[in-house]
């Protein structure tokens, strides 16, 4: 069982995000970290390979400045190797361009399954994974909350607006997982040491061989949204509930 896991490396989310005033792209100059959303896919892939009794987890990432820190975290969790695409021309890429790059990077190694997160934390287009599936001409199951492989058949519980569907699908296929599907492991000290020598294939667009890539959209302006005025904040001393009652009464809810 060989699994390609898309992992996005993103700015630390505890630092407020910023748009470059010139290009309007999200500023990504600091150190990047593994997107939390993708740690679930990595964990799930490691477990599936383990259960299959053999195979490799290959990480796939596109990030500026040959950034490796987030990939090292996922390698330390247990992934075998990584493919990183880094090229200044990819700054501000739209979802389809990102998907083309990732699909081309995935094709460099044999795979039975591709995993991604339903949405990235900083981009949240939520379309990249299924675009990758279409480009690779494989079936996809998005919004997966439980993933199993039985006799070469992928079995997924897929969240829907009203509950969930049991979906089955032959391999190769792509799944995008929601957070919370599994508990991502913490890298062990041994894992962290081993990650330093695991192979990372770093490519630029020319090396990837996709041909020219152009994003089909541009940001025309950025403005602050109207702020919601904040209201009254009271500290509960035992009678705080009364304030809620009065507020609801004033709105004629009760």
């Amino acid at each position: 069982m060989n699994i390609a896991v898309c992992v996005k490396q993103i700015p630390d989310q505890s630092v407020p995000g910023r748009l470059d005033p010139g290009t309007h792209n999200l500023v990504r100059d600091g150190k990047l970290i593994l997107d939390d959303s993708d740690s679930y896919g990595v964990e799930m892939a490691l477990q599936l390979v383990d259960r299959a009794g053999g195979g490799e987890v290959t990480l796939i990432s596109m990030a500026p400045n040959s950034e490796l820190s987030g990939l090292r975290t996922a390698l330390a969790m247990g992934a075998s190797k990584a493919v990183l695409v880094s090229d200044p021309s990819l700054a501000g890429s739209d979802a389809l361009t990102t998907a083309k790059v990732l699909a081309a990077a995935i094709r460099r190694n044999p795979f039975d399954l591709v995993m991604a997160a339903t949405e990235s934390t900083d981009g949240y287009t939520g379309t990249v994974p299924v675009q990758i599936a279409e480009l690779l001409d494989i079936p996809s199951v998005s919004f997966a909350k439980k993933v199993e492989i039985e006799n070469g058949v992928l079995k997924v519980q897929r969240q829907t607006e009203s509950g969930y569907d049991e979906v089955e699908c032959p391999l190769p296929a792509l799944v995008s997982v929601t957070a919370g599907v599994v508990e991502p492991r913490y890298p062990s000290f041994k894992g962290i040491m081993a990650a330093k020598s695991k192979p990372v294939d770093v490519l630029d667009v020319a090396g990837l061989g996709t041909g020219p890539l152009t994003s089909g959209q541009e940001i025309v302006s950025v403005r602050d949204a109207e702020e919601r005025a904040s209201g009254t904040v009271v500290i509960d001393e035992g009678e705080g509930y009364q304030q809620v009652v009065e507020f609801l009464e004033s709105l004629k809810i009760i």
């Binding site: 996809s140 049991e166 699908c169």
Partner: peptide, 12 residues
């Protein structure tokens, strides 16, 4: 190939 993923049961 996109059509190979199929719902076998729905839970509401």
């Amino acid at each position: 190939s996109a059509g190979k993923a199929k719902i076998v049961q729905s839970h509401v």
